[in-house]
């Protein structure tokens, strides 16, 4: 196997009312804000101008917003073929909050109005779909559910996708929402063989990943 060096050429993490871009605080909210309130401020602060944002459920909003900030000025579509841009996201609670919200619309026969706008978000991979739609990414995407964040699994799996030529660049990480608890980390992972040029970054290993998480 040829030796491929994979690098993290960007990262964004959102948790505890903070947006951390490449390891530095890029935006900070009031700790009293609810998560949806906070994400709305983030959306406005980073001037995302994508009204569909408001239709998304909190999990999708978190994944979408994290990707949006991560991918600013990255011009991936210019550097890579759309079909070579992959997404790998891990999450613990799947879409549990929106599942519960949807269940409320159908639980009672006398008040049975299943909402399509809620149902559509009752799959965690919809957030990957929304990122793909926004950025015209047409590559492989997979959502894994996992008890805990695992830097090793992310490293191994993304490296395998590169090795198998399933993707040449990958947006990878963790996006989790459960009631008031939330945390995201998405990294842009490129490698020195496929990329003509890449921003200088950290070597893609468990140390670096854990540091960002």
């Amino acid at each position: 196997m040829e030796s491929i060096e994979n690098v993290i050429s960007g990262s964004c993490s959102i948790h505890e009312q903070k947006v951390i871009i490449d390891g530095k605080v890029g935006f900070e909210g009031n700790i009293d804000w609810s998560m949806p309130e906070f994400l709305k401020k983030v959306y406005k602060n980073f001037e995302m101008k994508y009204p569909k944002f408001y239709k998304m459920d909190p999990l999708t909003k978190l994944g979408f917003t994290t990707a949006e900030i991560l991918l600013r000025d990255k011009n991936l579509n210019e550097k890579y073929d759309d079909a070579d841009i992959g997404i790998v996201i891990l999450n613990r609670s799947s879409s549990i909050d929106i599942d519960k919200a949807f269940q409320l619309t159908i639980d009672d026969n006398d008040n049975y109005y299943p909402s399509p706008a809620l149902f559509v978000y009752t799959l965690p991979n919809i957030m990957a779909g929304e990122i793909c739609i926004r950025h015209k990414f047409k590559g492989e995407n997979t959502v894994f559910i996992r008890k805990e964040f695992s830097a090793k699994f992310i490293q191994d799996y993304v490296s395998l996708l590169f090795q198998k030529k399933k993707a040449k660049v990958c947006i990878a990480g963790w996006v989790e929402v459960n009631h008031t608890q939330y945390k995201s980390l998405l990294m842009l992972v490129e490698n020195t063989i496929f990329a003509n040029s890449y921003d200088s970054g950290h070597t893609f290993d468990t140390n670096a990943i854990n540091k960002l998480f």
């Binding site: 079909a83 793909c132 739609i133 047409k138 590559g139």
Partner: peptide, 9 residues
């Protein structure tokens, strides 16, 4: 292999 339409959810 997998892919995404990048079209509609």
């Amino acid at each position: 292999s997998g892919s995404n339409d990048a079209n509609h959810i």
